[in-house]
């Protein structure tokens, strides 16, 4: 009787130490570098690097969110980003904090090239190297790389940079959501009058 208890204890101890060793090894061997949640948050932020959230870029804001800051401080991302963050972090989706700015249509920077004096100030300001130019040469924006962060507008001494909204073309046009009003009761009003605006 005694010996069977002893055997059970010994066997369990042996198992415990074996698993302990395996777990300990795994903890070292498969160590996760960095903080995965920060990476995941960072992946949802628009990477405009504009600093409107009050942090020097998207990554620092991602870190701050991971540390408990609120998720509604990024105007370029807007409600979509807030929703995605809320989904990821299992928080409630709150509206954008107006203090940090409002959601604006996407824009790109445009340099009025004949006014550019080639001071290179905008190049230094651009966080994604989207401006091409050299000292005393005309500068220009690579539209496909520009994130529309606005940061180059302020440093320009001759104010030759405009933020222009991206044009809507058949290629980037989006289908609008159909407007259907489920509260309408068909028999409530005269059909003809009701249907006038409904044809699509």
């Amino acid at each position: 009787m005694m010996s069977s208890i002893l055997i059970a204890v010994v066997v369990l101890l042996a198992l415990a130490s074996v698993f302990g060793i395996i777990l300990g090894f795994a903890a070292v061997r498969f160590r996760v570098e960095g903080d995965p949640i920060v990476e995941q948050i960072d992946a949802l932020l628009p990477q405009t690097q504009c600093g409107q959230c009050g942090y020097p870029g998207c990554k620092p804001y991602a870190q701050a969110i991971a540390d408990g800051d609120s998720i509604n401080k990024c105007p370029p991302g807007g409600q979509n980003t807030i929703d995605a963050l809320a989904d990821l972090l299992d928080l409630e989706a709150i509206p954008l904090d107006a203090e940090h700015g409002e959601e604006k249509p996407k824009t790109v920077a445009y340099i009025r090239e004949d006014e550019c004096i080639g001071c290179t100030k905008c190049i230094q300001a651009c966080p994604v190297d989207a401006i091409l130019g050299a000292a005393k040469q005309m500068h220009t924006v690579i539209v496909s790389e520009c994130t529309g962060c606005d940061l180059c507008v302020e440093p320009c001494p001759v104010d030759c940079i405009d933020m222009i909204p991206l044009p809507v073309t058949p290629a980037n046009w989006k289908w609008p959501a159909p407007v259907s009003d489920p509260s309408l009761i068909l028999t409530d009003r005269g059909r003809g009058q009701l249907l006038q605006g409904a044809s699509q």
Partner: peptide, 30 residues
């Protein structure tokens, strides 16, 4: 129409994600 709307929203979102990660790469490189 609802499906077309949803599809184009998803496509735009994916495009924006791509653009964002591209911007991140450029930002980090800089």
């Amino acid at each position: 129409q609802h499906y077309r709307f949803a599809k184009s929203e998803i496509r735009t979102e994916e495009f924006e994600q791509q653009k964002a990660s591209h911007a991140r790469i450029r930002f980090e490189a800089r």
